[in-house]
């Protein structure tokens, strides 16, 4: 049911135009963070207000919308955002990646490869990849302008000298089309290689008032060193429900003895594999529930 008290997709048209202009600039300058006058949304900063504003400016009533948080459609914040758009934009929603036109995500890229006609909207907490090395916006903006990314390489190198490896496991910085260093949002580095994709990727950081974008087929390179190449790692297990060996896994503690199981973080991917007859070490979830 659409809520008649608010404009389509909640935001007023002038706000949407402002966001839309920022999205176009973002697409034209891939990886550059476009300042935008983020509005106060009826949900807290830090809970996806940037992604929600980008989705609101992007959705049409013909779209089918999917929201995931940690790869799952049924986590509370994903449910809350999905409900918000059902109410304010009257859009159809789905949990199936393949059926979605616009997918808003927090912390994951779906396992299934996205298509040219799909749009992936990321929620971003801190859009500035250099922020934890240099807290001042005035400074980091200069660094981007001068393409001065030495500080980032020094940080990664210090990791190697201390730990013998690059100690960044999520929000792993990437270089976009050889120019801007970009924060891919806090996705696990396992997802980084997927960013070279046919779909449009839009990033919204509400509190920090930044929008950035990656057009389809844009070259995305995870920063690394020749002798310490980037590795897209995951738990070295198969999914205990669907048997997938290629998906990112959540580790679930089962009992007081510390027994664990590993399951796909992408709930739709896991469900569709099980529907297609794939079975993991612990059988299907239904069997598990039946035996519970």
């Amino acid at each position: 049911m659409s809520d008649q008290n608010y404009n389509f997709a909640y935001l007023d048209e002038q706000t949407k135009r402002m966001i839309r202009r920022a999205i176009l600039k973002g697409l034209a300058i891939p990886g550059y963070q476009v300042p935008f006058a983020s509005r106060e949304m009826p949900m807290p900063y830090g809970w996806g207000t940037g992604g929600v504003q980008v989705s609101a400016a992007t959705l049409t009533p013909d779209d089918t919308f999917k929201v995931i948080d940690q790869g799952a459609d049924d986590t509370t914040n994903a449910v809350s955002i999905r409900k918000f758009f059902e109410r304010t934009a009257n859009v159809a929603t789905t949990e199936e990646t393949a059926k979605a036109d616009v997918i808003q995500t927090r912390h994951r890229i779906p396992e299934a490869e996205l298509r040219e006609d799909q749009i992936l909207v990321y929620q971003v907490p801190i859009p500035e990849p250099l922020r934890f090395l240099e807290p001042r916006e005035t400074e980091t903006r200069k660094m981007h302008a001068l393409e001065e990314y030495g500080l980032m390489h020094v940080k990664l190198y210090e990791d190697i000298s201390q730990h013998g490896a690059i100690a960044t496991s999520y929000a792993y910085p990437v270089k976009v089309e050889g120019r801007y260093v970009m924060d891919p949002s806090p996705i696990p580095k396992f997802d980084n290689p997927k960013m070279d994709m046919p779909a449009i990727q839009l990033f919204g950081a509400g509190r920090e008032q930044r929008i950035y974008a990656v057009p389809p087929y844009t070259k995305i390179v995870s920063l690394d060193f020749e002798d310490y190449p980037f590795e897209a790692t995951k738990a070295e297990h198969a999914c205990d429900l669907c048997g997938s060996t290629h998906s990112y896994l959540d580790e679930v503690i089962l009992d007081d003895q510390g027994n664990r199981m590993f399951v796909c973080s992408d709930t739709d991917y896991c469900r569709s594999r099980r529907a297609a007859g794939h079975v993991g070490r612990l059988g299907t979830e239904n069997e598990l529930e039946a035996s519970a």
């Binding site: 389509f8 949407k16 400016a57 009533p61 449009i200 057009p215 389809p216």
Partner: peptide, 19 residues
């Protein structure tokens, strides 16, 4: 229908700029 027409038109403009 300003909100709806603009949403469709923006999709076309965004697709164009992205491709």
């Amino acid at each position: 229908a300003p909100a709806i027409d603009a949403a469709h038109a923006f999709r076309a403009a965004m697709n164009a700029m992205a491709r």
